[in-house]
Amino acid sequence: MVSLNHYLVLSAILFAIGTAGVFVRRNLITILLSIEIMLNAVNLTFVAFGRALGAADGQIIVFFVMTVAAAEAAVGLAIVIALFRHRESLNPDSWTALKW
């Protein structure tokens, strides 16, 4: 029988995969994709809890998370395009000017 815990564990695994992607990858696009994986893991948690509690609020939060994800993707990709024009590279190590 699939219970709430199954969904929570799956969500934790997906979130950790996204975190690993942010740390391990050296490509701005892939890092943004990893952030999307993390956002989706959180969405799954919201929907699963909403189902367990019998409330529709979890799905409404998912609606807002998706909106924020869309805004984040639009702005993030615009920044990636601007950076790529600047340095012809997608490697985040190309921009370390603010690093001491």
């Binding site: 699939v2 950790a16 391990v24 189902r51």
Partner: peptide, 30 residues
């Protein structure tokens, strides 16, 4: 970073399942 991600996975699973055995979902969701 990879190690941190693995640690995060373990922690999340531990925390999220700490509530004990959750039963089946209630029927008739709104």
């Amino acid at each position: 970073g990879g190690f941190l991600a693995a640690a995060l996975a373990v922690e999340l699973v531990w925390v999220l399942t700490k509530g004990g055995e959750s039963g089946a979902f209630p029927s008739g969701a709104i």
